[in-house]
Design a protein around this nucleic acid. Structure first.
Length: 298
RNA sequence: GCGCAGGUGGCAGAGCGGUCAAAUGCAUCAGACUGUAAAUCUGACGCCCUUGUGGCUACGGGGGUUCGAAUCCCUCCCUGCGCA
């Protein structure tokens, strides 16, 4: 046996690039099961705004890690990673091929590289305390406690500084370095779109999302007790829709801002993905089948 | 037609004689990314080059005052509001 490592296929790309549909087709063809890598589709009741795939659209293909968390509570990468690892094992056991499909780059990487993320849960009290300090103070403190981490962290990013300090203070040890070695054999296929295409796809999809009743979904979430603050944390659609419902912006402003913000999100996603030289980029989804077939040695 | 208020970079909007290629916000472009990642954060953003305490063109058009104007004056054009 030349290669013992288990095989995983990853379908990735910016939002609205057509990942879900392609993943299903690949799953059908190659006996696969899909693990979603979407930081928001993990939440129940966030269906329209996250463009979550419906049961019908799944076409009988098993999908994992959708609707596994309550929207009231933050679900983090680590929780995702833990759950996804278990599922990977199950799929391997069945002799099927796992297909990771999603646009949350960190989630994909955490899973396929098996990131050793520090087991320090968010410390509410500590965070509150640290929050009071200036960014500069936070950075200086980190320099003193964990010089290595301080050299690579963004000194302006308070959220990261606080998390790094949280780890150091809680464990008494520096933030561990992350190894980017995968225990799996991974084929990464990326769906490439031109900026103009992407803009078009995003706008089309957004129009559908609104038509399907995004506003109604947000109202329902409110009825279920979600605070405005929490809604704002659940992504740009929910944030902007809640601004609209609160009368802070007009419907037109909301729709327009959703477009530009979604496009910017897509660009951030691409910035992340483009660093990864192992991704095979295709602009024609049809090409994915041949690539998979070859890679699987069929 | 008269009166008043305005016309500034892709947009919004500061500046009201020098330190202004012009605050700030948005958009745009590029980038970062170790438990919120559809999040969080950074940089660039008039043009040119030999990239510099560099050159050039700029704050509606034209003219003027001044050593010096986006900033003051005259005039023309345009916009909004008020009065006819």
């Amino acid at each position: 046996m030349k290669n013992q490592k288990a095989k995983i296929i990853v379908i990735l790309g910016p939002t609205a690039s057509g990942k879900s549909g392609l993943a299903i087709k690949i799953a059908k063809k190659f006996k696969g099961e899909i693990i979603s890598a979407d930081s928001r589709q993990v939440y129940k009741d966030l269906d329209i705004g996250t463009e979550k795939i419906t049961k019908k659209e799944m076409k009988g293909i098993k999908h994992y890690l959708l609707d596994v968390a309550k929207p009231q509570k933050i679900y983090t990468v680590v929780q995702y990673q833990r759950a996804a690892k278990k599922i990977l094992k199950q799929i391997f056991k069945k002799g099927k091929i796992p297909i990771i499909c999603g646009g949350s780059g960190l989630y994909i990487d955490a899973l396929i590289y098996d990131y050793q993320l520090p087991a320090v849960a968010p410390q509410k009290g500590l965070r509150k305390q640290l929050e009071k300090k200036s960014t500069e103070e936070l950075f200086k403190t980190l320099q003193g406690l964990d010089p290595r981490r301080a050299t690579v962290i963004d000194p302006c990013n308070r959220r990261r500084l606080i998390r790094a300090l949280e780890i150091v203070l809680k464990t008494g040890k520096p933030v561990p370095k992350i190894e980017k070695q995968s225990p799996y054999q991974v084929l990464k296929i990326g769906l490439k779109k031109s900026p103009a295409q992407l803009r078009l796809l995003i706008n089309q999809r957004l129009r559908k999302t609104l038509k399907k009743g995004l506003i109604g979904e947000v109202k329902k979430l409110r009825q279920k007790g979600l605070s405005w603050k929490r809604l704002e944390e659940l992504g740009l659609e929910y944030r902007l829709a809640s601004y609209y419902l609160r009368g802070l912006i007009s419907y037109e402003q909301m729709a327009e801002q959703m477009q530009t913000e979604t496009y910017r999100l897509a660009k951030r996603q691409m910035t992340w993905f483009e660093k990864d030289k192992n991704i095979i980029w295709i602009s024609n989804p049809q090409k994915a089948f041949a690539i998979c077939r070859d890679w699987l040695g069929l």
